[in-house]
Simulated scan of single mutants.
Amino acid sequence: MTSAPSVQAAQTPDLSGLHAFDLRVGKWKIHNRVLKARLAGSHDWLQYDGAQTWWKILNGLGNVDDTRLDKPGDAYSGATLRAYDPKTGQWAIWWLDGRTPTGKLDPPMLGRFANGVGTFYSDDSLRGKPIKVRFIWSKITRTSAHWEQAYSPDGGKTWETNWISDFTRIG
């Protein structure tokens, strides 16, 4: 005889795979801490707020956000596109930065969620030198979330966290 799933199991959101970002849909206030100089031995951080709106696309296989960052003296907007590949279980994440006149689409970050934490990697460059980039999404709940960006100049042996964002739901 098979027992029915418990009520608690039915109410617990699936924070892996396709549904990993479902709780992010909505409107958010962002508090950012950004390292003033990246991969330069800096320990000086700039703090500022922002706002973000997320929605699902492609029948849930993707999502988009529209982000405003109120960086002092250089406020700007950007957008993120995320797409899930059900065959590989990976997400691809692209950032479109509104500070470039034609919009620069960064290389995709690729990764997945395990135990409620999403880890994503990409190759990029900084000041003409190759680097690895890492995003970590964690603590995603109905009312909050945490994101970090880190760079590695040595192929992923060491990482410098250079951007930390904490999100609070506002709608």
Score class of each variant (00 low, 15 high):
D106Q: 12
F113N: 12
A51Y: 01
T119S: 14
W54N: 11
I30Q: 14
P86S: 08
R82A: 10
R33N: 14
D44S: 10
P101C: 03
H19V: 02
V64M: 06
A145F: 00
A150F: 05
Q8G: 03
T161R: 07
L46E: 15
H31S: 11
L110Y: 07
P101I: 02
Q90W: 06
L46A: 08
V64S: 05
R38Q: 08
D14N: 13
I93R: 06
A51D: 12
N162S: 09
I170H: 12
L18S: 05
P13I: 00
I170G: 13
S122L: 02
L81E: 10
W28Y: 05
N63W: 05
F167M: 11
I136D: 00
L23E: 04
V64T: 09
S138F: 12
E160H: 07
G17V: 11
L110Q: 15
L46H: 02
G17N: 09
T141C: 05
I136L: 06
I136V: 15
L110W: 08
T158W: 04
M109C: 09
L46S: 12
K157H: 09
P130R: 12
N63T: 08
G98N: 07
H146M: 02
T102W: 06
W45F: 04
Y48K: 04
W28V: 10
L23G: 11
T141G: 04
W137E: 08
I93V: 14
L61R: 12
S165M: 15
Q52T: 14
F135C: 07
K104D: 15
S16D: 13
R68Y: 10
